[in-house]
Simulated scan of single mutants.
Amino acid sequence: MNVLEIRDLGVDYLSGSGTVHAVTGVSLDLRRGEILGLAGESGSGKSTLAGAVARLLRPPAAITSGSVVYHRQDGTAVDVLTLQKNELRAFRWKELAVVFQSAMNSLNPVGTVGAQIDDVLRAHAPRMSRDERAERTAELLRRVGISADRRRSYPHELSGGMRQRAAIAIALALNPEVIIMDEPTTALDVVVQRDILHEIRALREEYGFAVVFITHDLSLLMEISDRIAIMYAGRVVEIGTARGLHEGARHPYTVGLLRSFPRLHGPREELLGIPGTPPDLRSPPPGCAFHPRCGVSVAACSSVVPVLGDGVACLLNDGTGVS
């Protein structure tokens, strides 16, 4: 059963030098309790998509099309994009929470970690007593691997991994159904990354929430995700299970990403990068946006925009037509 359904979502950034089409016609389903990875190079639209789903975008960003339907446990559904200000405030944290890329920047530097969890509880669970909030704060910190006595610590007194764990604790405060994690392990060393990933999986199993996990590191997503969506130039170009993409990626861009990191097993292979650079989204190339960088493109790729059919948007693989 889907907890979130994104349909034909479009987001533009308006500027004097032209309109940047950051997200174009994205449709995705997030199943209840799954981890959906979202991968792509910088500038592919991943964080913009997440910001649109959570209604966190500010001008000059503008949502130009689409819907984001959230399905509650009781069977009711609501389009997040139509929520009024007071409804949106109630929706966030209780039903959807966000863990941002840099915990040092997302956490308040002049507030203790415990006070910041307490702020969420006071604002969204006003019936909780002071003692109940203190108990819940200590429980959340312990659950993410932080000693309860660190609730009086300020963000700068914590390591990078502990700050990221604290940000996850804040997101879990009200047991939301969906958590969006925007590159939560960026700038952490590989040992701490593995600890955070293990914690996310364990928490998902315990609380049953669904995760949208955003990163440019496809190898990391292969380890944690149930399914993975690949974004390029504001569009989803391939989606499938982690195993399916690892063993049989069909879009040339996905293949290029997979060939950009080494395999731990098997024969030694030369690492191959993707030539060229991502397109300028103020004036993307006609046809498939990836064709100027694609080593297997054909003439039709420069004029026909492939749609996402059977899990891939590529004329050489699906032949589903044009958008």
Rank of each mutant, 00 (worst) to 15 (best):
R201V: 09
V3T: 09
M231K: 09
L140R: 10
L271P: 05
V20K: 03
R282W: 05
L140S: 06
S106W: 01
L38W: 09
V305K: 13
R136F: 04
F91N: 11
S153G: 00
S219Q: 03
L14G: 03
L257W: 01
S15K: 04
V80N: 14
G234E: 03
S302L: 03
G266W: 08
Q73I: 14
G321I: 11
V99F: 08
E270G: 07
Q193I: 03
T277Q: 14
G25Q: 13
Q73D: 15
A52P: 06
S260M: 00
R204T: 02
L49D: 13
G276P: 14
P59C: 13
L107I: 02
R89G: 02
F100M: 05
A39G: 06
D182E: 04
V192T: 07
M104E: 05
P306C: 13
V178C: 02
R259C: 01
M128H: 04
D79C: 15
Q116T: 03
A138W: 11
V191K: 00
R58F: 08
A54K: 06
E205S: 10
P286W: 08
T76D: 15
I224D: 02
E87T: 12
S42I: 12
I228Y: 03
R227N: 06
R127S: 15
M181N: 03
D280C: 10
T24V: 15
V212S: 02
R127W: 11
R259T: 04
L308G: 10
K85T: 14
W93E: 07
I224T: 06
R152G: 13
P292G: 07
L96G: 07
A77S: 15
Y13V: 13
Q193R: 01
E199F: 00
L36H: 08
L28C: 13
E238F: 12
I214A: 00
R235P: 09
N317F: 08
G321L: 07
M231L: 13
R32H: 06
R136T: 10
T64Q: 15
L121V: 12
L218Q: 01
G43T: 10
P267L: 11
R250E: 13
G295A: 11
E183L: 04
T19N: 06
Q101T: 09
E238G: 08
R227W: 10
P292I: 08
G266M: 01
T254V: 03
A123G: 03
N86L: 14
P292M: 14
D280E: 08
I179A: 01
R133M: 08
G160C: 01
A97W: 05
L36I: 11
R133S: 10
H71M: 13
R227I: 09
V120I: 14
L158T: 02
C301L: 09
S159C: 00
A77W: 12
R130G: 00
N86D: 14
L245C: 05
P279E: 10
Y232E: 06
S283K: 09
F100N: 05
T320A: 15
L38P: 02
Y207Q: 05
T277E: 15
V113W: 05
G25R: 14
L141A: 02
A138M: 11
L141Q: 09
G10L: 03
D189W: 04
Q101A: 09
S303L: 07
P252H: 05
